[in-house]
């Protein structure tokens, strides 16, 4: 039982890292959103598995929030936003898939080295969960840095949040209120950023954040 529990937890967390890599090189909007939905579903599964093996039924709440909010509502909403903005046909120039991937692999290696050593005395389940979570977080940040399109940046930010939730649920004894508030903060961020998206679009006829820089009178 114990070994299986560990393996499944590993599988799900590792799956999230893998999906983060998938996110990194998607250059079409719909594909990106679909992969993001998958990311959230795997997260929900992982959190639910944690709830099961830690005997912590309250963890099902964040799992449900992740599944419903991030797996269904936000991707669907973003779909509609993309259609309304009329950018569903554009292909984003991600630029240098190879180097980005290599960089991402470096980040995963880095987070493994840091976490496995820093939490050497912790319970192995939590330790490796934390290492995966840090990788997901760094990959999300990397995605925000490499993308120009505001929608992709939002997706990067959301996947970063997913990493946070993975970390929070992996550690035993974290109060429920923390997990719930992390889960809901994403919703708030989505609303705020969504409003901004339309404002930017209204003003600049584009959601490429470079337009903002031009408006401020700067060349990149």
């Amino acid at each position: 039982m114990d070994a299986t529990a560990l393996d499944v937890a590993h599988l799900l967390a590792g799956g999230m890292v893998l999906i983060s890599f998938l996110l990194l090189y998607q250059d079409r909007m719909f594909a990106l959103l679909n992969v993001f939905a998958l990311h959230a579903i795997v997260l929900a599964a992982s959190v639910a598995w944690q709830a099961h093996i830690q005997n912590a039924p309250h963890l099902y709440v964040p799992a449900a929030i992740a599944l419903i909010l991030k797996g269904i509502i936000i991707p669907v909403a973003l779909h509609r936003v993309v259609i309304r903005l009329g950018i569903h046909r554009t292909i984003e120039t991600v630029g240098g898939i190879g180097p980005t991937m290599l960089l991402g692999m470096g980040l995963v290696a880095l987070s493994m080295v840091v976490m496995l050593r820093a939490a050497a005395t912790a319970d192995p389940l939590a330790r490796e969960d934390l290492a995966f979570a840090l990788s997901v977080l760094l990959l999300g940040l990397l995605m925000m840095v490499t993308r120009r399109n505001a929608v992709s940046q939002i997706v990067g930010f959301m996947s970063l949040e997913n990493g946070l939730i993975l970390a929070a649920t992996g550690a035993k004894g974290m109060p429920l209120v923390v997990e719930i508030s992390v889960a809901f903060s994403v919703l708030v961020a989505f609303i705020v950023i969504g409003v901004f998206l339309f404002r930017i679009r209204e003003r600049f006829d584009s959601v490429d954040v470079q337009a903002l820089d031009v408006y401020r009178g700067e060349q990149r």
Binding site: L141, L142, M144, V145, R148, V209, L212, R220
Partner: peptide, 13 residues
């Protein structure tokens, strides 16, 4: 004080 959003993000990263 006058960097672009991406540059700030890159800085944090």
């Amino acid at each position: 004080q006058f960097l672009t959003i991406r540059k700030y993000l890159s800085l944090v990263f």
